[in-house]
Computed example of a mutant assay.
Amino acid sequence: MIGKITDKGVGSFRNRIEYIFGLCKHEHALTTIRTIGRNCFSPDPLRHGHDKDKIDVEEMIQEFDAVEKLRNNAIDSDRVIKPVWHAILSLKPGETLTDEQWREAIEMYLTDLGFSDLNKWVAVLHGDTDHQHCHVVAQRIRLDEEFSMVKDSNERSRSCDSTSRIEDHFGLIKAPAPTETWGTAISRNALEAAEREGTIPLKHRLIAKIAGAVETTAAAQGDMFMLISLLRKQQVYVHFTTNSDNQPTGIAYEYQGKVISGRQLKRSRLTFQKLTQQEGISYDPETFRELEVEAARRDSEREERVRIYYLVLRARNRRPRRISIRVQNQKELEATIKLIITAILSLFGIKANFEFEDKKEGAPYYQLRSNWASLPQSEQEKDLDIAWDDHKELAL
């Protein structure tokens, strides 16, 4: 079972209620419309039949809308609220539930999402040639003394947990969690348009491109620079939103002139936070300016890889000093290190020779040999180690 919560609405419930009862244009052919359950006083709109001229939704609309009017009269507040809540619960093709099972499933779902008997709701079953699914429209304002609202924080995560519980309860086929798959629902309109054009919907082509780049980057233990580079090769470009500290708070993806945020594409995997915290794409806040420059590139020329190394000078009982160095290759790195250290030590009259030694995995060391024997004993005791770390890989 898949649960999808649509965008919340302000104002009247008319559009949502007319939609679920088939009184306005629908994105699929309706072969079955049946009221599964409700907790309002108004009669079932389908009581006189299923023909459009016999479906009467006016009393139900007035009852749902009256709750917000009562709240406005009781509470002096200018805060804009969104009381209209609409969700769809869908079974896999071939699966069915009885009306009694559907009602039990709906009540379980609403309870898990924070609704109670104080919230008005109605559930309508739609059956078509593909699969059974049920629309649930509910009033988020509770009929209590404070006219409190059902909270929507983490509601999509709670929705997934609830549908999983329903699947277990009725022995339904388990749908994969959003964090386990790159799939996302395709609207009937988008699917029909794609079939006419002989293409895959743009949103799903974009997700496929991003998914491949994310998986390749994660497998290589790469960073945001690598991800952006891989995406650019597929003509997918990245945009960041930032906070007052000029640090990224969001990410959007541009493809064929259309920009879609990671939250809209797949909030469980493609937001900036999910990429860095869940998918394992490393990110260094100190490199964000360079990251913005990299993301702004649109050329497809061959990229040269540049490594940033840190040269660390360690003296006994002193705080290490770190110097950032950009070099093209290992040979250039070695020459740079020798030049810097030789220059520093020459200030003290020390002639330096270098020997390379790999003291531990991933951390090559240069052991310094010098004419220290001619120096006073106190000076000889000041050991000096030079180390470098392969810190980041940048695409320039």
Rank of each mutant, 00 (worst) to 15 (best):
T249V: 11
Y255A: 07
R289W: 01
R302H: 01
L118C: 11
F41W: 04
E100Q: 08
G114F: 05
F288N: 06
K151W: 00
D112I: 03
V312R: 05
F348H: 08
L46K: 08
A296D: 07
I186E: 08
S153W: 01
Y237P: 03
I20W: 04
R267L: 05
S261A: 14
N72C: 09
G280A: 11
E334W: 12
R140E: 02
V293G: 05
R232A: 10
F41P: 03
I88R: 06
R307H: 05
S282E: 13
S187N: 10
S157R: 15
E59K: 15
G183S: 15
K338W: 00
F13Q: 08
L339F: 05
L227G: 02
N15G: 06
S378N: 14
V214K: 08
Y255F: 02
L396P: 00
S164N: 07
Y309F: 03
E197P: 00
N329I: 09
I260F: 02
S116M: 09
Y366F: 13
P43Y: 11
R302C: 01
L206R: 10
R196E: 01
M1V: 14
K174Y: 04
M108C: 10
Q247L: 13
E192I: 13
I61M: 06
E59C: 11
E180T: 07
I228H: 08
D112G: 11
Q278T: 12
S42E: 12
E195W: 00
L231G: 09
I281C: 04
E145F: 05
E155T: 09
N353S: 15
Q328P: 00
A29T: 14
K360A: 11
M149N: 07
G222A: 12
L384D: 04
D390L: 11
D51Q: 06
Y255P: 00
V67S: 06
Y366I: 15
F64N: 12
A252M: 07
R188N: 10
A363M: 07
L91F: 07
L265V: 05
H204N: 15
V236Y: 03
D284I: 04
H48L: 07
D56Q: 11
G37E: 14
A138K: 10
I228K: 05
G3C: 08
V57I: 06
I323R: 15
P43Q: 10
A29E: 13
K331P: 00
I81G: 03
P176I: 10
A296F: 01
K233Q: 14
M224I: 10
Q377R: 14
V214N: 06
L202K: 12
R47C: 08
L230I: 02
I323W: 08
R140V: 04
R322E: 04
F41T: 15
S148R: 09
E303R: 14
D128M: 07
W182H: 01
N246F: 10
H48R: 12
E290I: 04
K233L: 04
E167P: 00
